[in-house]
Lab assay of single mutants.
Amino acid sequence: GIQEIVAMSPELDTYSITKRVKEVLTDNNLGQRLFGESILGLTQGSVSDLLSRPKPWHKLSLKGREPFVRMQLWLNDPHNVEKLRDMKK
């Protein structure tokens, strides 16, 4: 599951990941809330907090790293936007 992926993950640049996620969401007119609930399993508040103030990787616990790994996996998925759009319906 995701825990193994997080444990094996190389250090991620949390700042550039969140910046990229925000760009993709904005460009495709997708909400942070939808993204947070569907992709990260987080509430709106947690998501906007994460996206606006990402902590550096080395300061995060494994649990804290999980959303960033999920974001990275989502960014790597060529169908990420379509999938999210489908969830919106």
Rank of each mutant, 00 (worst) to 15 (best):
residue 11 E to K: 15
residue 38 S to Q: 13
residue 77 D to K: 04
residue 17 I to E: 02
residue 53 R to K: 13
residue 78 P to K: 07
residue 34 L to G: 06
residue 87 M to N: 11
residue 2 I to V: 08
residue 80 N to I: 01
residue 10 P to Y: 07
residue 53 R to M: 08
residue 3 Q to K: 11
residue 19 K to I: 09
residue 65 R to E: 00
residue 43 T to K: 14
residue 78 P to E: 10
residue 62 L to M: 15
residue 74 W to K: 01
residue 66 E to L: 06
residue 7 A to N: 12
residue 45 G to C: 09
residue 77 D to R: 03
residue 37 E to N: 13
residue 57 W to P: 00
residue 49 D to C: 08
residue 65 R to W: 00
residue 78 P to L: 04
residue 71 M to V: 01
residue 25 L to Q: 00
residue 36 G to N: 08
residue 6 V to L: 08
residue 77 D to A: 04
residue 5 I to Q: 13
residue 77 D to S: 05
residue 26 T to D: 15
residue 83 K to T: 07
residue 21 V to S: 00
residue 12 L to R: 04
residue 78 P to H: 08
residue 64 G to N: 06
residue 55 K to N: 05
residue 63 K to T: 09
residue 87 M to D: 08
residue 41 G to D: 07
residue 68 F to V: 02
residue 81 V to S: 03
residue 86 D to F: 07
residue 88 K to M: 06
residue 73 L to H: 13
residue 20 R to L: 04
residue 18 T to N: 03
residue 59 K to I: 08
residue 20 R to P: 02
residue 8 M to E: 13
residue 32 Q to S: 12
residue 58 H to V: 11
residue 62 L to A: 13
residue 45 G to L: 09
residue 12 L to D: 02
residue 85 R to H: 08
residue 27 D to I: 15
residue 84 L to G: 01
residue 23 E to T: 11
residue 52 S to C: 10
residue 38 S to I: 11
residue 55 K to P: 14
residue 6 V to D: 12
residue 89 K to L: 07
residue 12 L to A: 03
residue 61 S to V: 02
residue 11 E to W: 12
residue 30 L to Q: 02
residue 4 E to K: 11
residue 1 G to M: 08
residue 13 D to P: 01
residue 51 L to M: 09
residue 70 R to G: 00
residue 59 K to H: 09
residue 65 R to M: 00
residue 6 V to I: 12
residue 53 R to T: 13
residue 10 P to L: 07
residue 47 V to R: 02
residue 80 N to H: 09
residue 87 M to R: 11
residue 52 S to A: 10
residue 4 E to Y: 05
residue 50 L to W: 04
residue 89 K to P: 06
residue 3 Q to P: 11
residue 52 S to V: 06
residue 21 V to G: 00
residue 33 R to A: 14
residue 28 N to D: 02
residue 81 V to M: 04
residue 22 K to W: 05
residue 46 S to W: 05
residue 5 I to H: 13
residue 12 L to P: 04
residue 9 S to H: 15
residue 40 L to E: 00
residue 79 H to R: 13
residue 36 G to Q: 08
residue 17 I to P: 04
residue 75 L to G: 01
residue 74 W to F: 12
residue 25 L to F: 03
residue 23 E to D: 09
residue 75 L to K: 02
residue 15 Y to T: 13
residue 47 V to I: 11
residue 6 V to R: 06
residue 77 D to T: 05
residue 41 G to T: 04
residue 43 T to E: 14
residue 15 Y to L: 12
residue 35 F to D: 00
residue 44 Q to S: 14
residue 15 Y to H: 13
residue 13 D to L: 02
residue 5 I to D: 12
residue 79 H to M: 14
residue 29 N to Y: 12
residue 9 S to W: 05
residue 20 R to K: 13
residue 38 S to C: 14
residue 36 G to D: 03
residue 44 Q to I: 10
residue 16 S to P: 01
residue 35 F to N: 02
residue 3 Q to G: 07
residue 71 M to N: 02
residue 44 Q to R: 15
residue 56 P to V: 01
residue 76 N to T: 07
residue 2 I to R: 06
residue 67 P to N: 15
residue 58 H to E: 08
residue 38 S to V: 12
residue 7 A to K: 14
residue 82 E to L: 09
residue 40 L to Q: 02
residue 50 L to Q: 00
residue 53 R to I: 09
residue 16 S to H: 09
residue 23 E to P: 01
residue 24 V to D: 05
residue 46 S to R: 09
residue 21 V to H: 00
residue 20 R to G: 04
residue 77 D to L: 02
residue 33 R to V: 14
residue 61 S to E: 06
residue 13 D to I: 00
residue 43 T to C: 14
residue 38 S to F: 07
residue 69 V to R: 05
residue 74 W to T: 01
residue 8 M to Q: 15
residue 42 L to S: 06
residue 88 K to W: 04
residue 43 T to A: 11
residue 49 D to Y: 07
residue 54 P to K: 02
residue 30 L to M: 07
residue 27 D to R: 15
residue 1 G to K: 15
residue 39 I to P: 03
residue 84 L to H: 02
residue 60 L to G: 00
residue 2 I to W: 06
residue 55 K to D: 12
residue 76 N to V: 07
residue 54 P to S: 03
residue 17 I to A: 02
residue 73 L to C: 13
residue 62 L to I: 15
residue 56 P to L: 04
residue 16 S to L: 12
residue 37 E to G: 04
residue 36 G to S: 12
residue 56 P to Q: 14
residue 59 K to R: 10
residue 72 Q to N: 15
residue 83 K to Y: 06
residue 8 M to R: 15
residue 12 L to F: 06
residue 36 G to I: 12
residue 62 L to S: 11
residue 41 G to R: 07
residue 66 E to M: 07
residue 8 M to N: 14
residue 67 P to F: 03
residue 59 K to W: 07
residue 69 V to I: 15
residue 61 S to I: 01
residue 4 E to H: 10
residue 21 V to I: 10
residue 46 S to H: 08
residue 44 Q to F: 12
residue 24 V to P: 00
residue 3 Q to V: 06
residue 85 R to F: 10
residue 79 H to T: 13
residue 38 S to N: 15
residue 87 M to K: 14
residue 59 K to E: 12
residue 12 L to H: 04
residue 16 S to F: 14
residue 53 R to H: 15
residue 23 E to I: 06
residue 9 S to F: 07
residue 81 V to C: 10
residue 34 L to A: 09
residue 7 A to T: 09
residue 42 L to E: 14
residue 52 S to K: 08
residue 7 A to H: 11
residue 5 I to T: 13
residue 77 D to Y: 03
residue 88 K to H: 08
residue 55 K to M: 14
residue 35 F to A: 00
residue 60 L to R: 02
residue 31 G to N: 13
residue 17 I to R: 03
residue 28 N to V: 01
residue 12 L to K: 05
residue 26 T to G: 09
residue 63 K to W: 01
residue 20 R to S: 06
residue 55 K to G: 07
residue 86 D to G: 13
residue 8 M to A: 15
residue 68 F to Y: 15
residue 39 I to E: 04
residue 11 E to F: 05
residue 60 L to F: 03
residue 49 D to K: 07
residue 25 L to V: 00
residue 32 Q to N: 10
residue 65 R to K: 06
residue 30 L to E: 02
residue 64 G to C: 03
residue 87 M to G: 11
residue 6 V to Y: 06
residue 75 L to V: 03
residue 40 L to G: 00
residue 46 S to F: 07
residue 46 S to A: 13
residue 60 L to D: 06
residue 15 Y to Q: 09
residue 45 G to W: 08
residue 40 L to A: 02
residue 19 K to D: 05
residue 6 V to N: 09
residue 62 L to R: 10
residue 17 I to T: 05
residue 61 S to D: 09
residue 82 E to F: 07
residue 19 K to F: 04
residue 67 P to W: 05
residue 14 T to L: 00
residue 50 L to M: 13
residue 51 L to F: 15
residue 49 D to Q: 14
residue 47 V to E: 07
residue 42 L to F: 05
residue 49 D to E: 15
residue 67 P to M: 10
residue 78 P to M: 07
residue 2 I to H: 06
residue 40 L to T: 01
residue 31 G to Y: 03
residue 32 Q to F: 15
residue 41 G to N: 15
residue 27 D to E: 13
residue 36 G to C: 14
residue 76 N to W: 04
residue 37 E to D: 06
residue 85 R to Y: 08
residue 11 E to P: 13
residue 49 D to F: 10
residue 56 P to G: 03
residue 82 E to S: 11
residue 65 R to I: 01
residue 33 R to P: 09
residue 81 V to R: 02
residue 10 P to C: 07
residue 48 S to A: 13
residue 61 S to P: 06
residue 47 V to Q: 04
residue 46 S to E: 08
residue 35 F to C: 02
residue 68 F to T: 00
residue 20 R to Y: 03
residue 60 L to Y: 11
residue 8 M to D: 14
residue 63 K to V: 12
residue 57 W to E: 02
residue 68 F to N: 07
residue 4 E to V: 04
residue 70 R to I: 07
residue 81 V to T: 07
residue 30 L to T: 02
residue 73 L to M: 15
residue 43 T to R: 11
residue 56 P to F: 02
residue 82 E to K: 14
residue 53 R to Y: 07
residue 27 D to Y: 11
residue 88 K to C: 05
residue 54 P to L: 01
residue 72 Q to K: 12
residue 14 T to W: 02
residue 58 H to W: 10
residue 15 Y to F: 15
residue 81 V to A: 07
residue 40 L to D: 00
residue 40 L to S: 03
residue 67 P to E: 05
residue 76 N to P: 03
residue 33 R to F: 11
residue 23 E to R: 13
residue 29 N to L: 10
residue 89 K to E: 10
residue 75 L to S: 01
residue 2 I to P: 05
residue 68 F to R: 00
residue 88 K to D: 12
